[in-house]
């Protein structure tokens, strides 16, 4: 028996928590790349045709939980006031390559605030300057329903930003989105979703063995799956040196791109990811989710959290706004 302590700080969950018995997707095709199931070496810097790489990420924070009782009827419903920040960092494509580069800079940072209320409740809160919470009705009543809906707000905002940025400057930008792609839009040519942690497996045991054996910068061949809703190509990639004392999935990320791309384009994107991402990997003492939480993304998250404002202040402002609304008898549909 071998026991490895997971590298992420316990508060941040786990980098690998796979339900092995979940079964292989029916449409899985591991021969999509056509190179045989073996490690693919890291892509070459010279093959990169973009000028900059953009990292997109979002953060969210629950500012207050509310409970809404309508004037008529007794179907009270729970709700959450949430602040969401989404932004992008632009890095020189040569960043981390040792050559002198332009400094990383935040090119976009937007904050959205919503109040998600179950049972289709529509409640907008104007808590103060810069603290306008838009209504977000949620059909169900379960906390997970609210959670998913809010998460979708963030993912959608990320996806919109990703497509907008990738499209804006044509082929000059490669966009890496932190997390799975919410929109498998074929219009965006160079958008890669990067998934930091793994709680599902798509491959069988023999195929998964290759993941554990990947060296730094190596990736698996890309494979196809996703069904009719989210058809995509995906591959596993190791960001750091393989450590014998660690479990085999330490430092592994999964990348995905929409299946609308041609195999040749996917191959280029996959090679670009294996060339670039290890350079941006963070170090264990630097980040609690190293190496998967990339340095530019960590910087962006810090910036976005900062933009969300003071949580205690938001909480107090929401309380006073709620008191005002209740006193004023404002209706909740």
């Amino acid at each position: 028996m071998k026991i490895a302590v997971q590298a992420w700080a316990p508060d941040y969950g786990s980098e690998v928590e796979i339900a092995w018995d979940q079964g292989r997707p029916e449409d899985l095709d591991v021969t999509a790349e056509g190179v045989g199931w073996k490690a693919v070496p890291a892509g070459k810097q010279n093959d990169l045709t973009w000028e900059e790489v953009l990292f997109i990420d979002g953060v969210r924070r629950t500012d207050a939980r509310v409970f809404v009782t309508p004037e008529v009827g007794d179907r009270a419903s729970a709700g959450v006031a949430v602040s969401v920040g989404v932004g992008a960092v632009s890095c020189d494509i040569a960043a981390g390559n040792g050559s002198p580069v332009r400094a990383a800079r935040i090119v976009e940072a937007v904050v959205k605030r919503v109040v998600a209320v179950g049972g289709g409740g529509e409640l907008a809160l104007s808590a103060g300057p810069g603290l306008e919470y838009a209504a977000l009705p949620v059909a169900g009543f379960a906390p997970e329903d609210l959670d998913r809906k809010v998460h979708d707000v963030m993912r959608d905002a990320e996806a919109v930003l990703a497509i907008e940025l990738a499209a804006a400057a044509g082929s000059g930008r490669l966009v890496i989105v932190d997390g799975p792609l919410a929109k498998m839009s074929p219009g965006a040519t160079a958008v890669i979703g990067m998934i930091k942690s793994h709680n599902a497996t798509y491959l069988d045991e023999a195929e998964n063995a290759l993941v554990s054996e990947l060296e730094c910068g190596e990736r698996t061949p890309f494979f196809y799956f996703g069904g009719p809703q989210r058809p995509r190509y995906s591959w596993y990639l190791r960001l750091c040196e393989r450590d014998e004392d660690m479990h085999g999935w330490h430092g592994i990320v999964r990348c995905e791109v929409p299946a609308a791309h041609s195999v040749g384009t996917v191959s280029t994107l996959a090679d670009a990811s294996s060339c670039l991402l290890p350079r941006f990997a963070s170090l264990p003492h630097w980040d609690a989710r190293a190496p998967q939480n990339l340095v530019p993304i960590a910087g962006l998250e810090k910036h976005l959290r900062h933009l969300l404002g003071d949580r205690d202040l938001a909480y107090r402002m929401i309380r006073s706004a709620a008191a005002r609304l209740s006193g004023g008898g404002e209706q909740v549909a």
Partner: peptide, 20 residues
């Protein structure tokens, strides 16, 4: 602003990976 490790200076100024 926003850097907390000494080495962040390299990440910002030389590597260009950390926005600050």
């Amino acid at each position: 602003e926003g850097t907390s490790f000494e080495s962040d200076t390299f990440r910002v100024a030389v590597a260009g990976t950390l926005p600050a």
